[in-house]
Design a protein around this nucleic acid. Structure first.
Lengths: 337, 337
DNA sequence: CCGGAAAATTGTAGCGCTACAAAAATCATC
DNA sequence: GATGATTTTTGTAGCGCTACAATTTTCCGG
């Protein structure tokens, strides 16, 4: 591959103007709104641009137009993989509008979220997507379009909230198990915000069906161990249970372990449904029925909402739920006996 | 939370200078090298900055200094989760130096990698980290410090290569199984680059031990199905096999399925070791012995290498392997019989 | 208390681009 | 062909910051 000789200086808009025989302003116009320029000049300018390998300097554009065309994404924690889908969704909606996404993570513990946000604000991002627990002070002293993604306790004033409909997903899971003929259904929950929404959705559908509500782990965490403990409790106190809904896929794994320890086979003796449609659930070996958050759709919606708010910051804050999707796989089955 | 009234105009360096009673140049100096400013003025300037809530404009800084303080990361595919660790490692090494990371993904298929790279080059990133298959033309016409992360077929001229020592990891896996007393060891491999390195490492250690080399799946993929098929072949052709090394955790899952189908229990009848130390392996239910790539360390090294190359672009291209780590869990056991 | 070196501070001139008003070219109409 | 309305093109003046030379202040030894 030929790499051109390291040019001493990148070509600027002036170089393009000179070789195309027009004024710099005209070149700038071509960049922003080609249709306003006569075809003859446009062609000449474009030819000059590709001849010189010209790339507009984002910094200069930003400075001159005071539009950064970039939005910031603040995340809690890289290990929480849902942000990957969120990011993908955001990018797909944002890039057609010429926006770039810049990532900043706020490692929990310290007051890193303000720090992360500060960095983004220094770049003069036009909007902020907060996929982390917002702090009181993070937006102090600025008035920037912001949207919060995911369930959070506090939403800064004026910010939108786009989130997964966890309650709806809980209903879906219950609905699925009921439709398979189950009526002795347990739920493994946890103390988190998302878990409690899933729980309430589940509970409401179960009550509608006039079936006994069996819930375990309400004050525990949502790890695999917690799932195991909750499943053990449920299976021991209600040995007739035929189906289990876990608040996430990891907890479902704990349920598998509990079932195995009791000689119950999944899905013949016990149906198990998870939540998140994580790689765990997708694996052929585990082949787990799960509820998919559609975080990618959240990303798209977050992006569109933010775009709207950037255009009109006075917009009334919006709250929107994204409908999850049930992915039926091999760990749930019609009640046999 | 109080949000200050939306200030009509962000404070600039002039505002700070005025309220601190100094010249703009002095403020700029404080920003870059506080030690060169007398304590009295420094204090005054810093007070003015926080009073006004001043944040330097990155665009202006960039334009004036022609240093963007940002580096670009090109990735193949968001679904390939290893980039998350890479990113985390990079950020931890880069942020102390004031660098920001901007992400661009090149969805495979189309010529998107050039496109993604172009966007980054337009931002005038100071360096590029390529965690994707480099294309011939991607760096055409520029001469930018670049480092390639991960195994690739081609490395652009002048770029460094930092990657996981997959061969070393393969040796490690073999070593582990041998040390447990196994001597009839099978390997589930695939056609990919990483897989072939892991295979060669495995093979060399096995040959050293003077044990029969049993490899399956050389021309297949590396999915769970592929793992299943390869494991079936191996277990059927060499029924005395007591240990299996899978080229990744997903394939190991396939191996579990194959073992289960044959009534073999893991690890009592069959030890299985995976690769990647993915969430799959970490799960308590699966509790899989696996080799961890230490992609976070790759990220740190990538960042440092890039930093060095930015400082001195004439540096001789470097190739470095990062040592993986063996994580022993519950799917490997000492040979019993 | 002065001269000269060192340290601290400041003014000036851009970085590469866009906004916008002004000028030039083109067009339509009488 | 002249007139006014349109469309196209172009100068000019920054955007907010930094580099660097020039200037001012401070510090010392004599």
């Amino acid at each position: 591959m030929t790499q051109n000789t390291p040019r001493s200086r990148r070509p600027t808009i002036y170089d393009v103007a000179t070789t195309a025989g027009v004024s710099p302003s005209l070149v700038s116009l071509v960049l922003q709104n080609p249709s306003k320029v006569s075809e003859k000049r446009r062609k000449a300018v474009q030819a000059a641009m590709s001849e010189l390998g010209y790339r507009p300097s984002r910094a200069a554009t930003t400075l001159a137009s005071s539009q950064t065309k970039s939005i910031g994404l603040v995340i809690d924690d890289y290990r929480n993989l849902w942000f990957v889908d969120l990011l993908r969704g955001m990018e797909s909606a944002l890039s057609p509008h010429g926006y770039q996404v810049t990532l900043a993570d706020s490692r929990p513990g310290e007051n890193r979220i303000t720090e992360a946000t500060d960095g983004l604000l220094g770049m003069h991002v036009e909007g902020l997507v907060i996929a982390a627990e917002p702090s009181e002070s993070m937006l102090a002293g600025t008035w920037i379009p912001a949207v919060v993604a995911g369930w959070r306790n506090d939403v800064p004033a004026g910010a939108d909230l786009i989130t997964n409909d966890d309650a709806g997903g809980g209903r879906m899971a219950a609905e699925h198990l009921l439709s398979l003929g189950h009526s002795r259904i347990g739920h493994l929950t946890g103390s988190g915000g998302a878990a409690s929404h899933r729980r309430e959705g589940f509970r409401s559908r179960i009550l509608e069906a006039g079936v006994e509500v069996r819930i375990a782990g309400e004050s525990q965490g949502t790890s695999e161990e917690d799932g195991y403990a909750a499943a053990c409790w449920l299976l021991d106190h209600h040995p007739d249970t035929t189906a289990l809904f876990a608040a996430n896929d990891t907890m479902a794994l704990g349920a598998f372990a509990a079932a195995k320890a009791r000689g119950l086979s999944v899905p013949d003796d016990l149906s198990v449904i998870g939540y998140d449609n994580s790689p765990l659930a997708k694996s052929r070996y585990l082949d787990m029925t799960s509820v998919d958050n559609r975080s990618d759709l959240v990303g798209v919606d977050v992006a569109n909402t933010l775009l709207a708010r950037i255009q009109d910051p006075a917009l009334k804050p919006r709250r929107k739920l994204i409908e999850p999707a049930l992915i039926v796989r091999g760990t749930t089955a019609r009640l046999s006996s």
